[in-house]
């Protein structure tokens, strides 16, 4: 029953996202067609044609019905700037973003949780102070500045633009190496920025568990300090961090905008940037639905995983 409730809640959120996506771009002040064609010479006839093409001449309920039924079929409309279906454009960019964000999240989660555990266990030690200080600094600096700084410091060591070179041999190994080479700088930037959050959450979560009586029980049994930490403290302290990891992953899909723009990484973030400069309303609407949907789905996954890891939470 509760499982059904979770899924029902997620489905409801997705519908809300779709509705929001529709209205968000209908309530922006001004005529979308006018702002789309700004700076270009257009006649009234051309504008009327554009309006008909986007269905903007129809009454609002009909527009919504068309939008909603096509959305259910995976049709997000046609991008104005790319002259291709929005769904295709987004799908094409999804791969690079998942590669970048996935790699960065994996590293950031592993590193952040490990650093957080170490820092909390030796609270107020030199290690704790240095990691907390460095993490906070990295978190606080602007992402684009950090990215540009990395480019300058590393010089020609790593490529700083795009995802692959045009002159790489077409076989899989060379292509993979090339992509990996391009991946270094953007993922390091992203890790540096998001790692702090995982580290700090893990640290404070473990600090709260540090005085839990069951750790005294574990010590009294004669367990070594690191076993007490690994077997008893961390499995309890990691629970709040799990939710954060998944929520952030959902957000980071969209939130890599700055990093992708700085390094011209051809992912969703860069696409967002392009759609905004357009402005390409249907593309923005599609991106909003997809990224907000990702947050909802990730949240659902976090809930389910939390139920598996914590026996006190009954999901099924």
């Amino acid at each position: 029953m509760r499982l059904a409730g979770r899924f029902g809640g997620a489905a409801l959120s997705l519908v809300m996202v779709a509705v929001l996506g529709f209205f968000l771009f209908r309530v922006v002040p001004g005529d979308p067609v006018v702002s789309m064609t700004r700076g270009r010479p257009t006649t009234a006839a051309m504008q009327a044609e554009l309006r008909a093409q986007f269905g903007l001449d129809r009454p609002l309920p009909e527009q919504f019905w068309n939008y909603f039924t096509s959305l259910l079929q995976g049709d997000l409309g046609t991008s104005f700037t790319f002259r291709r279906p929005v769904a295709d454009v987004i799908l094409e960019r999804l791969g690079p973003t998942l590669l970048l964000v996935g790699t960065a999240t994996l590293i950031a989660v592993g590193l952040g949780l490990w650093l957080g555990v170490r820092a909390a266990w030796r609270r107020d030690s030199g290690f704790d102070r240095v990691t907390t200080g460095v993490s906070l600094t990295l978190w606080a600096v602007p992402t684009f500045w950090l990215g540009m700084l990395l480019m300058m410091v590393t010089g020609d060591l790593f490529p700083s633009r795009g995802m692959r070179d045009t002159d790489t041999a077409p076989d899989f190994v060379s292509q993979a190496l090339d992509v990996g080479h391009h991946l270094v700088l953007p993922s390091v930037t992203l890790v540096a920025v998001v790692c702090a959050e995982y580290m700090l959450v893990m640290r404070s979560s473990l600090l709260e568990e540090m005085h839990a009586p069951y750790l005294t029980t574990a010590r009294a049994k004669g367990l070594r300090d690191d076993v007490v930490r690994r077997r008893h403290a961390v499995p309890n302290a990691v629970l709040p961090a799990i939710t954060l990891v998944f929520l952030r992953f959902g957000l980071v899909v969209a939130g890599a905008i700055t990093t992708e723009t700085v390094f011209s990484w051809p992912g969703l973030g860069l696409l967002f940037y392009d759609a905004l400069t357009g402005p390409d309303y249907l593309l923005l609407q599609g991106l909003l639905v997809v990224t907000a949907g990702a947050v909802v789905v990730m949240n659902l996954l976090a809930d389910l995983l939390h139920g598996v890891l914590d026996p006190r939470v009954k999901v099924v």
């Binding site: 839990a212 029980t217 574990a218 004669g222 367990l223 026996p311």
Partner: peptide
């Protein structure tokens, strides 16, 4: 560590918090 629990053990108070909740 060898002496703990083998030579002497402790029954703690309020067993709710003295037991690991996820084991």
């Amino acid at each position: 560590r060898a002496v703990r629990w083998a030579a002497a053990s402790i029954v703690f108070q309020g067993a709710m918090h003295s037991l690991n909740p996820v084991q």
